[in-house]
Design a protein around this nucleic acid. Structure first.
Lengths: 342, 342
DNA sequence: ATTCGAAATGGTAGCGCTACCATTATGTAT
DNA sequence: ATACATAATGGTAGCGCTACCATTTCGAAT
C-alpha cells in the first residue's frame, strides 16, 4: 500500500485525480508516470503496466491545460467557418476533425458568421486558447486579424481558395478556374445565352466574374446576373428564376453559385412547365446529395471537400509536431459533374 | 521607461507576450494587470487605462491554458454530435456556438461518428481538456462513458431527446410523441395504409415504433417498414420507395425519418408518375429548406433546433459560472408543419 | 576487474496565470 | 484625533503538468 498523500487539496481543485496520485499508487515519481503515458517506450515494461493499472483504478484523465502549459502544446486545433447549417464546408470540417482526432487532437470550432469584426474577435479568442494549429475556410484578407495570426506564429492552413500569398499553408482550388470551366462546359454544350444566380459572398462572386469574363471572351451575349442574399435556401433559387423570367430576357442556361439555389431553379422551372434541360440547362456548385438525386439530376461542380479537410489536418499535425511541410500550397482542383440538367 | 525584464525566456516559450510584461509596461504588479482585464471595476480608472494601453501596444493575448489551470475555468464548452455533414443537429450547434461565444466561451466539437467506442474515446479526450460544460446531442446510455462523465462533475446538457433520468440537464423533446403525433395527423387526414421509411439510428427507431403503435391502436392495418442504412441521402428515399412498390403492398401515406429521405420518396414518386398527395401522402422530419420549397412542398415535423442550442448554452453558462439552473429539464416540443405533400 | 555508454528513473524548476491573504491608501463616522 | 470600514494594490503560492538536467543501474566491451 503506498503512502497516503496529504489531504490538503485546495478548493481550486475540482477533485479530479492528478498524475501525482497515479504515480504514488504506482510507486514511481510523477515524471516517470508522465513518461509511462506519453513516451511509453522510454520506460520499463514493469513500470508501464503499474502506471497503466493505477490509471485504470483511479480513472485518471490527464489535465491537458496543465500539460499544454508545461509543454506549449495544447493538442487543440482551431477551425474557423462562416456557418455550420447547410454549409458547403461541413464535409471539410468533418474530415478535418476525424483526421485530427485520430492523431490525438481536438477541434475548436469558431463561427465568423460572415462578419469581419466577429472574425477578428474570434481569432483573438482562438489565439488565447493557444491551439497548435488553425484552419481557415477561405483566405484571410490583410487586416488586424491577419497580422495577429502571423504574429502568433501558430501554423495556419487557409483553404477553399487559392492565393499566391497565403499566411502560411494553403489547400484549395481556384474559383476563377471554376467560373471559367463552367462557362466553357456550357458553351461546349451549345448554350449561348446565360443567366447567373449568385450568392453575394466573395468567393461566389469571383466564380461569377470569371464565368462572365469567359462568356465575353467567347463573344457571346452578356450574362444576366441575379444576386441573392438568402444564399442558403432553395427559395432563393425559385425567386431568382421568377425574377429572371419577369425581366423577359432570353437565356438557355443558368449557372447557380450553389446546389441549393440550383435546386430552387429546377423546382421553379418545373412549376412553370419549363423543361430541363431542353429549354433550360441548370448547373450548380457543391455536388450535394439533394442535387445528385434530384429529377432531373443536377449537374454540378464537385469540390474535393473531404480531401481538403484531410490534407489540411495532415499539414497541421506535421507542423504541430515540429516537422516541415515540403509543399504547403496545394491546388486540389475540382470536377464538373455532368448529369441530366445540362 | 519601465525596467527591462530579464531576457531568460526559455525555449518552451513560443515568444508570446505575457501578462508579466504587460504589467511591467503599465507599471503595476501582474496580479493588478490581471484584475484590470478580468474584473475591471475592482481597479482604479487610471490603472485600467494604463493596462489596456499596454495590452494594445504589445498585442497581448491572455494564455487561457494558464488562466484555466490557475482558476479551474477553461472557458471551453464541448459539444458531441454524431456527424456534421447534412446533419439535422447543425442548427442546434450553430445556435449553441453563437450564444457561447457571446458569453466568452469557445466550442470544442467532437464527432462520435455513430460509434459507441469512439464516443468513449472522445469523451475521455474531452474531459482531458477540462471544459466548463459538455453538450451532448442525444442522451448517453449507461456505460463507461456515462460513468466517467458523472465522475468528472462537469455540467452536462443532454438534448434532442427526453428521459426521466438525465445525467444532469436536458433540453429536448419526445420521439415517442413525434411518432404518435405524425400517425394521428395522417389518420385524421383519412389515410389508412401506412408505410414507414426509417434510418436505423436509435431515435428514428423510437419515432417509428411509436408511429406503428399508434396505427395499431387505431385498429388500422399494420405498417410496412423499410430501414435505411444510407440515412443521409436522397437516394436512400428513392430506393426505399422502389422497394415498397416492388413488394406490391398497398399504402397511401409514407412517413420518413428525415426530410432527405422524404425528398427521395417525393422524387421517385414523380419519376413514376405517382401523384402526391392524391395517390400518396408524404411527410418527413426536420423541416429543412429543401423540403419546404420542394414541389409539392413537403409536410414535415419541425424541431425547435436553434432553441435547443440556445437554451442549452444558457444552462451551461449558468452552471459554469457557479449559478444554479432552476428547471434543468425542458421539453421544447415540436410542430407538425402541414404543406402540400399530405 | 574496469570502463563506458545506454537505459531507466528521479529532482527541480518552471509554464503563465489567478486564489488567497496581506498591506497600504482613502474616506467616514465618532 | 481616533477607530474602523472600504477601496486599491501587491506578494506569495500554487494549479498539474513536462523540459531539462542529474543520478543510478546494468550489461557489454575491453
Amino acid at each position: 500500500m503506498p503512502d497516503r498523500l496529504p489531504e490538503k487539496r485546495s478548493r481550486r481543485n475540482a477533485g479530479a485525480i492528478t498524475l501525482r496520485e497515479v504515480a504514488a499508487l504506482a510507486g514511481v515519481a510523477p515524471i516517470t508516470a508522465s513518461r509511462a503515458l506519453n513516451t511509453p517506450d522510454k520506460v520499463s515494461a514493469d513500470v508501464r503496466t503499474r502506471v497503466l493499472t493505477a490509471v485504470q483504478r483511479t480513472g485518471y484523465v490527464p489535465n491537458r491545460l496543465a500539460g499544454g502549459l508545461a509543454s506549449a502544446r495544447s493538442r487543440l486545433i482551431a477551425a474557423v467557418t462562416p456557418s455550420t447549417v447547410m454549409s458547403v464546408f461541413m464535409g471539410t470540417i468533418e474530415a478535418l476533425n476525424t483526421t485530427l482526432f485520430d492523431a490525438g487532437y481536438q477541434l475548436l470550432l469558431g463561427q465568423s458568421s460572415y462578419s469581419t469584426s466577429r472574425e477578428e474577435l474570434l481569432l483573438e479568442a482562438i489565439i488565447g486558447q493557444r491551439p497548435d494549429g488553425i484552419f481557415l475556410t477561405g483566405i484571410l484578407l490583410p487586416g488586424k486579424a491577419r497580422s495577429r495570426l502571423i504574429a502568433s506564429k501558430i501554423p495556419v492552413v487557409e483553404s477553399w481558395d487559392l492565393t499566391p500569398t497565403p499566411i502560411d499553408m494553403l489547400v484549395g482550388f481556384s474559383h476563377d478556374a471554376v467560373g471559367a470551366a463552367v462557362a466553357g462546359f456550357l458553351i461546349k454544350k451549345n448554350h449561348r445565352r446565360f443567366a447567373l444566380i449568385s450568392a453575394d459572398d466573395a468567393r461566389a462572386t469571383r466564380r461569377a466574374d470569371a464565368f462572365k469574363a469567359a462568356v465575353v471572351q467567347a463573344q457571346l451575349p452578356p450574362v444576366t446576373q441575379i444576386n441573392i442574399k438568402a444564399m442558403r435556401t432553395v427559395e432563393g433559387g425559385r425567386r431568382a428564376l421568377m425574377e429572371l423570367l419577369e425581366r423577359k430576357i432570353k437565356f438557355d442556361a443558368v449557372y447557380c453559385s450553389s446546389d441549393l439555389l440550383a435546386l430552387g431553379v429546377l423546382t421553379e422551372a418545373r412549376a412553370r412547365g419549363i423543361s430541363v434541360p431542353d429549354s433550360l440547362a441548370i448547373i450548380g456548385f457543391g455536388d450535394t446529395t439533394y442535387g445528385r438525386d434530384a429529377l432531373p439530376a443536377l449537374s454540378s461542380v464537385r469540390i474535393h471537400s473531404e480531401r481538403i479537410g484531410e490534407l489540411s489536418a495532415q499539414f497541421l499535425i506535421e507542423r504541430a509536431q515540429g516537422r516541415d511541410v515540403p509543399n504547403p500550397i496545394v491546388d486540389v482542383g475540382f470536377t464538373i459533374v455532368e448529369r441530366e440538367s445540362t
